[in-house]
Simulated assay, not measured.
Amino acid sequence: MTASVEFRALRRVFGKTVALDGLELVVAPGEFVALLGPSGCGKTTALRCVAGFERPDSGAVLVDGRDITDVPANKRDAGMVFQSYSLFPNLNVRDNVAFGLRVRKVPEATRRAKARELLDLVGLPSYADRYPHQLSGGQQQRVALARALALEPRVLLLDEPLSALDAKVRVALREEIRRLQDSLSITTIFVTHDQEEALSIADRVAVLRDGRLEQVGSPAEIYNRPATPFVAEFVGTMNHLPGQISGDRVRVLGQVLPVDGAVPEDPSVDVLVRPEAVTVVPDEDGGATVTAASFRGASVRLRLRVEGGDVLADVPGHEAARFTTGTRVAMRLVERPVLVAARTATVPAPVVAADAL
């Protein structure tokens, strides 16, 4: 049986550092929610408050409406998987998986049967007698996941479990975690600083900043309709283009587009535009020049030099040959509402996000 989890006005302070500042969030039964944000935003602290490893200074953690803030960690019906695996080196895989059952004095035959079932579930049925040092990083994390599931928790907590793995293994294992979560319908909270990871695996993504919830929504909502400039910047790459506000519209690069969201008081703004919303075609009389191209398989990211700065644009990968360095192009923004922010840049604009190419 799965459970709802609620963070209610959660606050946690370490010295002068405010890790959580009134966090409010509800995770529905069986839902997979990713807590996403930069280092120090409070996402791991929030997870540890659910697990019982941290006690908030104020506010409460509720599971199915029951306040568990003061319940000891070993009395909470939650399983946690850490970044560092935390397997017992002196125990084989079977005994690592069954460790929690042994602590609860479950009979050995039952423990072995449960361990066998879970190793089948995570794709390691033939590894029961091996020791952690005989496993790859991805295999060790699968064992850690099986161990967390052994006690049949109502809530699964994952604290950046994939960050220590190489890229290919990370992608495969995140798909495996999603498959397991779907098959078990277990309420899952997944902490990560990796935007692609959060968007690809979660039902909803909660973006945190300085201990507060900046936005929560589906991956498509977070990416396509960021509620704030911070979310727009943190999730994906953004161009910053100079614009002038007039009413609820903004003039940018010779176009007039509707504004999505709040409008700053100052009419001089930064218009935030993703690279895929910039269309380009080769044109000898165009106002932009390709200065770099980065092949990304399905797409090519171009750096375009325009008067005053650079702009990033994505074009289909099969068109790479049309956009070699030095190619003159005509550039236009997709006709759709754009997010704007108060002008902050003091350097000549347009400018692009720091991760650029």
Rank of each mutant, 00 (worst) to 15 (best):
E233K: 14
S294E: 13
V306D: 06
G254L: 08
D283A: 09
R305F: 04
L253M: 13
V278W: 04
M238R: 02
F234Y: 15
V311T: 11
L257E: 00
S268T: 15
D285S: 14
R303V: 10
D310M: 06
V273Q: 11
M238N: 14
A313W: 07
G247H: 00
Q244C: 00
D270Q: 15
R303F: 07
V311F: 13
A292Q: 02
V315H: 08
P282V: 05
D283R: 02
P316C: 07
G286F: 00
G297A: 02
A298T: 04
D285Q: 13
R274D: 10
A313I: 13
L253R: 04
T291I: 15
D248K: 12
L302W: 01
R274M: 06
G308N: 03
D314A: 04
D310Y: 01
D248Q: 12
A262G: 00
D260H: 14
D310A: 09
D260L: 15
G254A: 06
D283Q: 01
P275H: 08
G261D: 09
S294C: 06
E276W: 05
F295K: 06
V252A: 00
S246C: 10
S246R: 03
E284T: 14
F234E: 13
G243Y: 08
P267M: 12
G247P: 03
V271E: 05
V300G: 02
A288G: 12
D314P: 11
G236D: 07
A313T: 09
I245E: 04
V235E: 11
D285H: 15
R303G: 13
R251Q: 09
R251E: 05
R249K: 12
P267S: 15
V290L: 11
F234D: 12
L272Y: 00
A298D: 13
D266H: 02
V290W: 03
G286I: 01
F234S: 10
L302R: 06
V311Y: 08
R305M: 12
F234N: 04
P242D: 07
A277G: 01
D314C: 11
N239T: 10
V256S: 07
R251N: 07
D248R: 14
A288M: 04
V271W: 07
S299Y: 13
L272G: 00
T237E: 08
R301N: 03
D314R: 12
R296P: 01
V263L: 10
V263R: 14
T237I: 15
A288S: 11
A292V: 09
L272H: 03
V250P: 14
T289K: 01
G309H: 06
V278T: 05
P267F: 07
T237N: 02
E276K: 09
F295T: 12
P275R: 15
A313V: 11
V252M: 02
V259W: 10
I245A: 10
R249Q: 06
R249A: 14
M238T: 15
V290N: 03
T291F: 03
R301T: 03
V235R: 12
L302K: 01
H240T: 11
V263S: 06
S294R: 06
D310F: 13
R249P: 09
L241S: 01
D266E: 07
S294T: 07
A277V: 05
G243S: 08
V273G: 05
L302Y: 13
